[in-house]
């Protein structure tokens, strides 16, 4: 896959203000990042993020599900293998752990051990606004 052409203006006489401003700076931009992420990192980044629905962004849960951020990598891996084997009982986790291979468990363990523990940003419900 190739880098897309910057902004629509290159294909038409039309310039949006935003597009124009972006173009001004694209000439100085570096497209090919010299520190290209490794394929393992990219792979595990989105898999780990998929855990966020139950365990919070980067493993910082704000409810009763365990915080994974900063968890010891060995402990994390041991628990995942225990869920997978059935030696640790669970309601849901065995259904996830069995779908994740051993290499991914190691990478996830490493990934979450490196995430900083953080207090999740507060989110307060609102009154549903009347229809206009």
């Amino acid at each position: 896959m190739t880098q897309s052409q910057p902004i629509a203006a290159s294909r038409s006489s039309y310039f949006s203000y935003f597009g124009f401003i972006l173009l001004c700076f694209l000439s100085t931009a570096s497209y090919a990042d010299k520190d290209a992420s490794s394929s393992n990192n990219i792979h595990i980044r989105s898999l780990a993020a998929s855990c966020a629905a139950c365990h919070g962004t980067n493993g910082n849960s704000r409810s009763i599900t365990p915080v994974l951020a900063g968890l010891d990598a060995g402990y994390f891996a041991t628990q995942m293998h225990a869920f997978k084997k059935g030696s640790r009982e669970s309601t849901v986790m065995h259904h996830h752990a069995t779908g994740i291979n051993d290499e991914e468990i190691s990478l996830l363990a490493e990934y979450f051990s490196q995430q900083k523990r953080a207090t999740p940003f507060p989110l307060t419900p609102q009154t549903l606004r009347e229809k206009p």
Binding site: M1, A32, D33, S39, I42, H43, S46, L47, V92, G99
Partner: peptide, 17 residues
């Protein structure tokens, strides 16, 4: 990845609950 000129993950895996 694509906007950095790099190849995206070729083996995506994700969960659904």
């Amino acid at each position: 990845e694509v906007m950095h000129g790099r190849q995206p993950d070729q083996h995506p895996v994700f969960a659904n609950t």
